[in-house]
Design a protein around this nucleic acid. Structure first.
Lengths: 210, 210
DNA sequence: GCGTCATGTGTACGCTGTCAACAATGACAC
DNA sequence: GTGTCATTGTTGACAGCGTACACATGACGC
């Protein structure tokens, strides 16, 4: 960090990114509400108003942080996805994919609660959630990965095709709800082991009930 | 409101309740973050620091508002519950109960998004969520109503008893997740009719998948 | 070399939550 | 009644926030 040493050059270089990084760090510790504009400029070694050259207002900064957080979610899910041990059985593989998406999602929520809330608690529309710049390293968004898993379920004959449309929303809702209840809702001090177990059960419920 | 006319008596009467009411109104319009302590005192016709005789700090006020909001949720669910047309068939009735809880929950989230977020987005533990002072007019909390519906499902032979423990969390997660995604998440501008339909499908998924 | 425009700084304002010291009230013991 | 005292209000102050406005700087195209 060059926050102590005063900048040599007048221009910062990439202030926008520096502000997003600082905001990201704050969100990581305490969620999106903890993203404070002035503090971000402080960490970037810049005067408060400099932020306004790159963001219309604080909410724009928070949006950018939220986008970055969504990318991190995608990464966590992709990680879980890569870990699948494929047995060659299309049906079993498809179920494993769906499970991987759910597990990755819940794991991220547990390990990075601040970022998770930054990713999903900030208003954004579906179009933005789907846009590829929020994808993980392998270039797929969380939503896309979920869609692939569901498509594979249909292909394997494990999910009636007429139930496929919109099924993302059902699966997403269930897992997201558990994450939110456990993070900032009434379940926030649920026993970790019980939480993990409940996570598995929610995923199983989705698998059965879709 | 006596906010314009200066108080005749030095004492307010029931300042605590007045502050909660004011906070409730603010939360109703824009969610829990919009609950601002000074504004509440203003509406109560009182100096800012008077609030500190009744609440340790702002978060304590928000907590009280959240409690009130939870009561409103209970009321909405009870309303839906009373509306069930019981056919005498225990199995059908139990399914109808579960559906009523889900529908009431989602209806409240849609009609009172600010209060909904105030109720569930503010950290509170399960014990507090269950405590009877947050119950609806008929004296039952949302969680209790959900539990009764699930018990009735077991009694009617529609849910294997070994799956009963913790089933609240599964059902709750699914419905809560949809509500959050639609309120402040990526689905926030989902077409209302599609949202309603998705709500029904989520409830159906829970019913099938529990 | 010079003008222009993006990007930074300085100062200021009103808002917030909260602290410390003080004042009015009303209930209760005598 | 009167004196005492805890309760509940008020006043004044402070730091931190987001942000508006005017100004400074310097990199780059001509």
């Amino acid at each position: 960090m060059a926050s102590t040493a005063p900048r040599a050059t007048y221009r910062h270089g990439d202030l926008r990114q520096a502000l997003v990084d600082a905001g990201f760090a704050m969100a990581r510790e305490s969620g999106p509400d903890a993203v404070v504009l002035r503090e971000a400029t402080r960490r970037a070694g810049v005067s408060p108003n400099a932020a306004y050259r790159h963001f219309a207002d604080r909410t724009a900064l928070v949006q950018a942080v939220s986008d970055a957080a969504l990318g991190a979610v995608a990464e966590a899910i992709e990680e879980e996805w890569e870990r699948i041990e494929r047995a060659g059985d299309a049906a079993a593989d498809a179920h494993a994919e769906l499970e991987a998406v759910g597990v990755g999602y819940l794991r991220f929520a547990r390990d990075e609660p601040g970022l998770f809330r930054a990713a999903f608690t900030v208003p954004r529309d579906l179009r933005s959630a789907l846009s590829p710049d929020k994808a993980g390293p392998r270039g797929r968004t969380p939503f896309e990965l979920l869609g692939i898993a569901l498509d594979d379920l249909v292909a394997a004959g494990e999910l009636p095709a007429e139930r496929r449309p919109g099924a993302e929303l059902l699966a997403w809702s269930a897992v997201h709800g558990l994450a939110m209840l456990a993070l900032e809702g009434p379940l926030h001090d649920l026993d970790p082991e019980l939480a993990r177990q409940t996570g598995r059960r929610v995923i199983a419920m989705v698998d059965r009930g879709l």
